[in-house]
C-alpha cells in the first residue's frame, strides 16, 4: 500500500464520520437509564439484585440498629457511623441508625450485603456534590428519603452508529 493511498484512506474514514450520529451523552440535560431501582440484597439467598450503587436508602421501620453495616464498613471506608434517632421503635430499642458520610463512601455496596433485615439498599441517585464537607454527611432522616430523579436515555444502535439520542 502506498503512503499517499494510506493517508487518503485514513482521511476518508474520518470524513465518513461527518454523517455518523453523535455518540456523546449531553449529561446534565440527559441522564442514563439504569436497570432497576438500585442495588439491593436478599439475605435469604445471599445474592444481590442488580442495580446502580448510588446513594443509600434506609427503611426506618426495618432497621434494628444492629450495627452490622457499620462493622462491614470498618476497614473499607469507615463512612458509616451509628447515631441516636429521636423516634423510638419496638424493634430498635437502642434507637440508633446509620449515618453515612459520602465524603468517604466508596459505593462498594458491602454494607447492603451485610444488612440482614432488608433495611439498607442503594438507589439510582448519584448526584451528591455539595459546597461543604459537612453537607455530605447524610443523617438517618435524609437517608430515608426516596430520590426523585428522571433518567431515561439509553444507548441506541442504528445503521448510522450508536447514539445516546
Amino acid at each position: 500500500m502506498s503512503t499517499a493511498g494510506g493517508i487518503i484512506r485514513a482521511l476518508n474514514s474520518g470524513v465518513k464520520h461527518l454523517a455518523v450520529k453523535r455518540f456523546t451523552l449531553r449529561y446534565p440535560e440527559q441522564k442514563l437509564k439504569f436497570v432497576g431501582d438500585g442495588f439491593q440484597f436478599d439475605p435469604q439467598t445471599g445474592v444481590g439484585i442488580a442495580g446502580l450503587k448510588g446513594r443509600h436508602i434506609l427503611f426506618h421501620d426495618k432497621c434494628t440498629g444492629c450495627q452490622l453495616c457499620s462493622v462491614a464498613c470498618e476497614g473499607i471506608a469507615e463512612a458509616i457511623g451509628m447515631v441516636k434517632v429521636k423516634e423510638t421503635w419496638k424493634h430498635n430499642k437502642k434507637a440508633i441508625m446509620p449515618q453515612i458520610d459520602y465524603g468517604k463512601c466508596v459505593f462498594c455496596g458491602l454494607c447492603v450485603d451485610a444488612c440482614p433485615f432488608y433495611a439498607l439498599y442503594m438507589t439510582n441517585d448519584y448526584e451528591l456534590s455539595s459546597f461543604t464537607k459537612s453537607a455530605l454527611i447524610y443523617t438517618p432522616g435524609q437517608l430515608a428519603v426516596k430520590p426523585n430523579i428522571s433518567q431515561d436515555v439509553e444507548i441506541k444502535i442504528g445503521k448510522r452508529g450508536a447514539t445516546h439520542g
Partner: peptide
Amino acid sequence: DLLEAMSGARVTHAYLVPGGVRNDLP
C-alpha cells in the same frame, strides 16, 4: 454501560467475590 448494568458501578465494580459474583445478571 454493560458493566454498569451488571455490577452497578462504572469503574470500580467490586463485582467478583470469593464464591461467585455479587448479583445475578439483570
